[in-house]
């Protein structure tokens, strides 16, 4: 009962912080509330038995990526914007319509208007996390380094490319 309440509290704070983030004028405030969103989502992950995902969500998103955003905002000195950042009423109408359409489609899909079979449990999937036997990390690490090893290597190449690309793009041209 109380666990359910905690989960709902995390969900509510995630949604609330996301709305605040989208509507604030100052980008630094937006970053702070996005960090709140990530922490709430990590709480949800914990209660959904995804402990490892919760941990890397805090470390990677809440730590690394958000610091990168803050760093760029400070580097470009954007912390105090005066003019209004939201688009006009026409843009608001179009954007709101598209967002509501997305929400409606997703909700309908999740409630079961679709015939997509993957939404329900099929036969003999072995359920995640025999926590008692394997611990939290092993059920994720083992397939990652056996079945998905090629994907993992390609991810490494992707990250290397991103590093090289980022350095190249921000380098001052010396010509």
């Amino acid at each position: 009962m109380s666990e359910n309440f905690l989960f709902q509290a995390f969900s509510a704070s995630a949604i609330l912080a996301a709305v605040i983030m989208v509507t604030r004028k100052n980008p630094v405030t937006a970053v702070i509330f996005l960090v709140v969103v990530f922490f709430s989502v990590s709480g949800m992950f914990l209660m959904l038995d995804a402990h490892y995902v919760a941990a890397i969500n805090v470390i990677l998103y809440g730590g690394a990526i958000m610091v990168l955003f803050l760093f760029v905002i400070m580097l470009l000195n954007l912390g105090h914007t005066k003019q209004k950042d939201l688009k006009g009423p026409m843009g608001g109408l179009v954007g709101g319509t598209i967002a509501v359409a997305f929400l409606g489609t997703l909700t309908q899909f999740f409630i079961g208007g679709s015939e997509f079979e993957g939404m329900s449990r099929q036969g003999d999937v072995q359920l995640p996390l025999g926590l008692e036997q394997q611990g939290v990390i092993a059920p994720i690490a083992r397939p990652l380094f056996t079945d998905y090893i090629i994907v993992l290597e390609v991810t490494g190449i992707l990250l290397l490319t991103a590093i090289v690309g980022a350095i190249f793009l921000t380098k001052k041209r010396s010509v």
């Binding site: 995630a14 989208v22 990526i65 688009k87 843009g91 954007g95 967002a99 929400l103 997703l106």
Partner: peptide, 30 residues
């Protein structure tokens, strides 16, 4: 699952409504 749908819609709204490129980027992360 429903929180996921709502957060996605909020992210779409942010991408479509904001002018600041960095905030649009944060909405994509959302």
């Amino acid at each position: 699952v429903f929180v996921s749908a709502i957060l996605f819609a909020v992210g779409v709204l942010g991408v479509l409504l904001r002018r600041n490129a960095i905030v649009v980027f944060m909405c994509i992360e959302l």
